[in-house]
Design a protein around this nucleic acid. Structure first.
Length: 763
DNA sequence: TAGCTAGCAGTTTTT
DNA sequence: CTGCTAGCTA
């Protein structure tokens, strides 16, 4: 049944009953309208029967022809379209990646466009990898596709990196093609080092990135409770210069530099520019698309304005709008959803608030959306524990169960309760290289070796608190400058090595390391693709066998080097140094060393993740936790004009993750400071006939609170007891519960402590 | 130099 | 509501 018909049917029964409805009790006008609507007449609908076209394809490439037979007419229309400029509005769960890959395959095998003349842009490495793998699976083993053919298949940033490397005018900006990329952490460290070495007075050290952005965009220097301007402008100036001097770029630089270069001279004439998740493009990325789309090139973009949840990161809805008014652009749509069962999909579609959106279900009606009222998050977690156990014993795989949260903070409580209740779980979120000190250090070592003038990396290697030998600071730099000023060296690395030998002759291990790094590039040129990096750098010794984490570190480093070797062996062009540079670039762009297959998510367990992290995923059972007003939409003091709309799309994304079962939880007494009473008012838009409401606020369950092990004993703090606190001195216990100890300290007055943290002493 | 206080900012995350 | 911290005060 089409959603429209279902809606009409629902509307007729919607307001029949007069019972109190906690959802409809909220004002309907509070629900913001979905902003972007593409007029239906703007879409070109599929007319033809594509059977004969599939036959033609089948005759030329049977594998592709076979694959096309499984597509619907909307999808085929997009694949076969001859238009030079197409924007495909793909509804949630409508198979957009399938269309994208089949379009590429069709262009390649039938229209004879070389893969190397297509630019295929995605936002995540995962998406890029998936597309690449799907393409490669269409090649026979013998045909041996070159990695160079897919040179322009990748994320915006990796393609930008490739284009910058190849551009003839790069040196005009003071960079060389072997530049390295700083991730967020590396940039923070870099900026802090600049402040340190240049003795700048810059406030709010851990908000540097934010402050620099504010200064660059709005020339704002004052921040929070600052009354006087600090040295922020100088920091920006110095960081620009130092980035050039050390051949470093950050993620934003990649896009803005490639735009600058392409503006000077378009170095790539792509036949096709193909974009995934088009709705997430920010203005600079659109600019890049424009620079790439010259004369003879064609454009094919796929996106869903209803799933735009990254406007806070700079994506703008106006992108879609400008394409609506662009008459040279053909618009098509994919309305058929293959993921969710009918009633869940119609409930989610109500959030779109748009009659013309015509999201169509292809599956049976299935279960209703469940809305459960828990007393608080504690009770909710214990409720899940028992629910999940029975789901699992009746055959549901743990991985098919997911709990979605608005904020990461909400996840903590569930982690501790699930580990206590023996529910296997995994928190899905990207870990940073900084969480693995050995790998973080290894990256710096390789960067220093490959880039002998990258003083930033050199210093990081030798002043690392775990694996270095020197203490970072002004004294070190002064000594080094004094030493190096007197002589001339081929590189900063050579200067530093000599400095080490002269000033710290006892640090033999690190002098050896420095020498190895100095000779690294020559060694690479002399050897084949196979190179024993671990042995060459003598890492066994540098990783410090006396350290408690030694075996762990060695294991991580060896695995990382194995990944590098694999990547380098796949690299068909360039010399060994270039292959290593490519590999390290990939490590920076991905944020980890698993650059071949990506991070494997093999662990068995219930998935705990934020709604943002869930985009693109699907599960059998989805639970949305803590969906009170105030959390969804999240209360903000400084809300942008489109904040509420984006929050609503976020709820839409959450609801459309479920294949068969969706349950929304809200709390009578939420522990979140910003939560308000009642379930998210966005849910008003969903008619009561599509929702099953369930109460789970019985008092006997609320007693079953989560307790820390230390708390279980009777409180040792009794009323009237004399105690001593390290800061407030002597005092008296006024009251003591398992939650807090209240004490009186004369001139300090009353103070309360959490029992498990209190640093109180009995007197 | 330590301690106090006012004032603001806080989600979400990929590259 | 919390946490952070610049800038003030003793």
């Amino acid at each position: 049944m089409s959603l429209k018909r279902l809606h009409r049917k629902l509307r007729s029964t919607e307001f029949e009953g007069n019972e109190f409805d906690p959802i409809s009790a909220f004002e309907a006008q509070d629900v913001p309208q979905q902003s972007l609507v593409i007029p239906k007449e703007r879409f070109t609908e599929p007319q033809e029967n594509y059977a004969h076209k599939i036959k033609e394809v089948y005759a030329r490439n049977s594998k592709l022809g076979q694959a096309l037979k499984t597509l619907n007419n909307y999808q085929l229309q997009a694949v076969f379209s001859e238009d030079r400029k197409v924007l495909l509005s793909a509804m949630v769960g409508s198979g957009k990646t399938t269309v994208l890959t089949h379009k590429i395959l069709y262009l390649h095998f039938i229209k004879a466009i070389p893969l190397s003349e297509m630019v295929v842009l995605t936002f995540t490495n995962k998406a890029a990898r998936e597309i690449r793998e799907r393409i490669l699976s269409f090649y026979e083993e013998s045909e041996g596709i070159q990695s160079e053919d897919l040179r322009y298949f990748g994320t915006f940033h990796s393609v930008a990196r490739q284009l910058i490397k190849e551009h003839p005018q790069l040196s005009e900006l003071g960079f060389t093609p072997s530049f390295s990329i700083m991730d967020k952490e590396a940039k923070e460290e870099f900026l802090l080092r600049l402040i340190h070495t240049h003795e700048l007075d810059v406030k709010y050290h851990n908000k540097l990135d934010q402050r620099l952005k504010l200064y660059r965009n709005e020339k704002q220097i004052l921040y929070a409770n600052m009354k006087n301007e600090d040295d922020l402008p100088q920091l920006l100036e110095i960081s620009r210069k130092e980035k050039q001097a050390n051949n470093l770029m950050d993620f934003d630089d990649l896009i803005s530099i490639v735009n600058w270069l392409l503006k000077q001279e378009c170095s790539l004439e792509a036949k096709w520019v193909i974009v995934d998740e088009f709705q997430d493009c920010n203005p600079e990325q659109v600019q890049l698309l424009n620079y790439l789309s010259v004369k003879d090139s064609s454009f094919f973009a796929v996106g869903d304005p209803n799933q735009s949840i990254y406007a806070w990161r700079g994506s703008t809805e106006q992108i879609f709008e400008s394409y609506i008014t662009d008459t040279s652009c053909r618009m098509m749509r994919l309305p058929l959803n293959y993921r969710s069962s009918g009633q869940l999909l119609s409930a989610a579609a109500c959030l779109l608030n748009d009659e013309r959106n015509d999201l169509q279900a292809t599956r049976t009606a299935g279960n209703k959306l469940r809305l459960v009222n828990h007393f608080d998050d504690n009770q909710e977690a214990f409720y899940y524990a028992s629910q999940f156990k029975s789901l699992h014993s009746s055959g549901t795989a743990w991985e098919q169960i997911a709990i979605l949260f608005r904020t990461r903070q909400q996840i903590n409580l569930f982690e501790s309760i699930f580990s206590k209740e023996d529910i296997p779980f995994e928190v899905i979120s990207k870990s940073s290289l900084k969480d693995y000190p050995a790998l973080f250090w290894l990256k710096k070592v390789l960067l220093a070796g490959l880039q002998a003038n990258d003083m930033d990396s050199i210093l990081s290697v030798f002043t690392s608190s775990d694996f270095g030998c020197l203490k970072n600071g002004k004294a070190l730099l002064n000594a080094y400058n004094k030493f190096s000023n007197e002589k001339t060296f081929n590189s900063k690395l050579e200067a530093f090595t000599e400095f080490l030998k002269f000033k710290y002759p006892k640090e033999t291990t690190h002098i050896k390391l420095a020498n190895s790094l100095l000779d690294f590039q020559d060694q690479l040129l002399k050897t084949s693709r196979q190179f024993d990096l671990y042995g060459y750098l003598n890492l066994d010794e540098v990783l410090k066998p006396i350290s408690v984490h030694y075996t762990e570190n060695v294991c991580q480093v060896k695995q990382a080097i194995q990944e590098l070797d694999l990547y380098i062996q796949k690299q068909s062009f360039g010399n060994n140094i270039e292959a290593y540079q490519a590999a390290m670039g990939q490590v920076s762009l991905e944020g980890h060393f698993q650059i071949n297959t990506g991070i494997k998510k093999s662990q068995e367990g219930v998935r705990l993740l934020t709604i943002h992290a869930a985009k693109g995923l699907e599960f059998d059972h989805v639970f949305l936790s803590g969906a009170n007003t105030g959390l969804i939409p999240l209360n903000r003091k400084k809300a942008g004009p489109n904040h509420l709309q984006e929050e609503k799309r976020l709820l839409f994304v959450a609801l459309t993750r479920a294949k068969n079962n969706m349950e929304i939880a809200w709390h009578s007494q939420s522990s979140a400071w910003n939560a308000e009473e009642g379930p998210s008012y966005f849910l008003n838009a969903i008619p009561s006939t599509l929702i099953d409401r369930i109460e789970n606020t019985k008092p006997e369950i609320t007693i079953k609170k989560f307790e820390d092990p230390q708390e279980s004993n009777d409180s040792p703090w009794k009323k009237g007891m004399k105690i001593r606190h390290p800061k407030y001195g002597e005092g008296t216990v006024i009251s003591s519960t398992d939650k807090e100890i209240l004490c009186e300290f004369g001139k300090f007055g009353e103070k309360s402590f959490a029992p498990q943290w209190a640093t109180l002493k009995k007197l």
